[in-house]
Every structure is written in structure tokens, then in C-alpha cells.
Simulated scan of single mutants.
Amino acid sequence: MKRIISTVLCVSVLLCMTGCEKKKESAVAFDPAPPFSALTEIKEGRKDVYLIIKDLESSYWRIVVEGAKAGSVDFDCNLYYSGCNNESDWESQSRLMDEAVTAGADAILLSPNDSVKLSEKIDEVYSKGVRIVLVDTAANTEHYDVCYMTDNLMAGQLASEEMMRQLRSKGYSDDEKLEIGVQVITTTSQTINERLAGFLQYWARYAPDNWTIISDIKYNDGDIEKGYECAEELLRDYPAMKGVFGTNNSSAFTLASVLKKHNRKDIALVGFDYSAEIAELIEDGDYAVSTVLQRQYEMAYEGIKTALELTEGKEIEQKFVDTGIVVVNAENYNDPDVLEALDHNRG
């Protein structure tokens, strides 16, 4: 019964949040995405690959750019890139795809800002013979070649397991009543929805009955200031809250910043990706903080390699390639395998 209730909660919350986003979309104005820039020396006779990322200012996406650049050097292609100023700006990505096709792109590496609304444009571009490799996030269409990404359902489950471990490490008993707050970036990303679903599924199955998820799930719409506001609201409105889950980079580091601001060492945090704010609390040792580290450098690097192979006629059997994750916390952040994974995420 508990699992059923949690699943219903997940679905109802997502539907509610999606409805709220639709009401606000028309009022949101984004700075336009800049023109494509060359990341490599441009040479005649080489294939032209165009990289379109979600957020030009994000440390996570800068690592994606670095991985793609390294791949373009190693596998000998011209690489151009652009992206958005906000992860909710799917319309700029649609325009950039058109610009890449007009410029003669042989392949496009795309991280969709909206898995549903961009599907029609992806279909259109794919039908023109341009090879499409998705990075980090899948789209609601079959008309792309391959997607390099995290197994986000599994990652959400691991995050849920890690949250329980951190809560117990802080001394909370299974009989104690406590609440868990959640902040997400958006509900239009398949990636985020799968992480949240995995987290809630695992929680419904294994968490003590007295440990509950706050139904007031916050979303920041890719706006950092809104992320801070969401974190402050959770702390203010839910005094029984002893854990917070951030489903992506901006959600996690805004939660970390607010916990540090209020010296809330009693609240466990589990997030995604790596930032200075997360690293500081992990290394502090007095905070119960973990992060699910993705391998976005490898996503982009392998994406470039595969894109070029596709332009040469190679057939790709796998539609999805799981690039793996590493859970980082105070107990393991100096382990050799974790340090190796962190090297790329530090840039």
C-alpha cells in the first residue's frame, strides 16, 4: 500500500507542476542563444559536428563542452557549439538545430531542454539525413541515432538509498517521524522525471513508515535565484524536514548553499553532479552530504566518436548507452576511483 501511495503521489505532483509551468511559460522571456562558435580549428574536408547544450553558464555543461572538444581533436572533426542561457529555453534549441542544418551539419550532438516539445524538430532534422546523437537527456521520439546518458531511474534509486544511509548516520531512528524535501529543475525533462520516479519508488519500498516525502515538491525552472527561494521555503515551512533531495546541479548546489547559510548540519542532502558548494560540505565532514556524480565528459566524448562513425555509415545497435555514475560522500571522496571521476568534473 505504501508503494502505491508514493507512486500516486509522484504522478499527481508531476501533473500539478506541469500545469503550473504551462501557466507561466508565456510570461517567461529568455536571453537569446548566441550564434555557434568554433571550438576547434576549422579545416576543409573534415566532418562538421554541431553541439547544442542546455545551459552555457552551468559548470555541468562546461564539462560536456570539454568532452566534446577532446573528442573532436582525437577523432578529427570540426566542432561548433552553442546553447541556452536557461535550461527551460527549448525554443532556442529548436532554432539552433535549424541553423546547424542550414550551415551544413553532418551531425548534431543535442542535450534537449524539453524532451517532448523538441521531438518534432528532432524528427524534422533527422528526416533530412543529419545524424543526431543525444547527450544526457533522451527525447520523446525514436528519430535519433543513439543517446549517451545516465540510467536515471537507477540513479534516483541509488540517491534514495543514500538518503536513508545519511539519515541513519545522523542518528535518526526508523521510529522517528521526519520529512524529506525535494527540489527539481523542471518536469519537462525525461531525465529529471526518471530520477524523481526512481527516488520515490525506492523510498516507497524501503523507507520506514515514519519517514515521508513532502508533497510540496519545489521546482526552480532553471533560475538560480528561484532555487535559493525554494530551498529557503522548505526550511521555513517544514520544521520536521531532516533531508533534502536535489535532482540536478542547480537544485543541489542551491540547497547546499542554504543549508550552510543556516548552519543546518542536522539535515541530510543528496544531490546530483559536482559543484564548489557541494564539495565544501562533503569535505567539511560535519554535514551529511552526498552527490550522484555523472560522467558527462564521457557522454560528449563518446558522442563525438559515434557521430562521426554514423556519418561513415556505421550502424549502431544500442539506442541508449549508460555511461555510469559514482556516489560521492565524506567517506569516499578521496578514494582513487572517485578522484578519477572527479577530475573531469572539476574541468
Rank of each mutant, 00 (worst) to 15 (best):
M97V: 00
N334H: 05
E161G: 03
D151N: 15
S115E: 08
S169Q: 14
T102W: 03
I42Q: 06
G67Y: 06
D273M: 08
K260F: 06
S160Q: 08
V146Q: 05
I214K: 07
Q294N: 10
C20S: 14
M163E: 02
S173M: 10
S82P: 05
D106R: 03
A288C: 11
N248H: 15
I63S: 04
A207G: 11
V146R: 04
H344S: 11
M299G: 04
L153F: 14
A155W: 00
K22A: 11
G83V: 00
S275K: 09
G246T: 09
T186H: 02
E194F: 01
A252Y: 10
K22H: 07
G285H: 02
V292C: 07
Q93M: 09
R195G: 01
N329D: 05
S59P: 11
W211H: 08
S94P: 00
W211V: 01
V270Y: 04
H143E: 11
Y333V: 04
V258C: 13
C10K: 03
N113Q: 03
P34T: 13
K226A: 15
I304V: 15
E162V: 00
D145E: 14
E225K: 12
P32K: 10
L14Q: 10
K47Q: 09
R95E: 04
S6W: 09
F30T: 01
G246I: 12
A38N: 13
I42F: 01
I5W: 12
K305P: 03
I63L: 02
D237P: 09
E21S: 09
D174L: 07
E120A: 12
L134K: 12
A103E: 06
